[in-house]
């Protein structure tokens, strides 16, 4: 449960970061037209920031999630 949720948080955060950076933000490469100045989705950089924060929050999930009845000391 703990590992699963931690992994899920990490994967969601990392995926959001990668997708927002490589797909949703303004294209990479030498700009040849106006399209290079606009993100494919507005506020994609905010999603990147949220993604990075969620990735780091995976550690909090791992540590703060209460122990289940069986595994409690």
């Amino acid at each position: 449960m703990r590992i699963g949720l931690t992994a899920l948080t990490f994967v969601i955060g990392a995926a959001l970061s990668l997708v927002s950076y490589f797909v949703l933000a303004a294209p990479l490469g030498t700009p040849t037209n106006e399209g290079f100045s606009n993100p494919n989705l507005e506020f994609a950089p905010l999603l990147f920031v949220i993604g990075m924060s969620v990735t780091v929050l995976a550690v909090v999930v791992y540590e703060v999630l209460p122990d289940s009845e069986q595994s409690a000391d």
Binding site: Y21, A25, A26, L28, G29, P31, F36, S37, N38, P39, E42, F43, P45, L46, F48, V49, M52, S53, V56, L57, V59, V60
Partner: peptide, 27 residues
């Protein structure tokens, strides 16, 4: 947060440099 372009080194400064550092330090 609306338009920042990964091509600009400022993207790294603002996001990775400040936000990621700030978020990870808070955690």
């Amino acid at each position: 947060i609306r338009y920042a372009r990964p091509m600009s080194p400022f993207f790294g400064t603002f996001t990775v440099g400040l936000v990621a550092a700030f978020a990870s330090m808070l955690v």
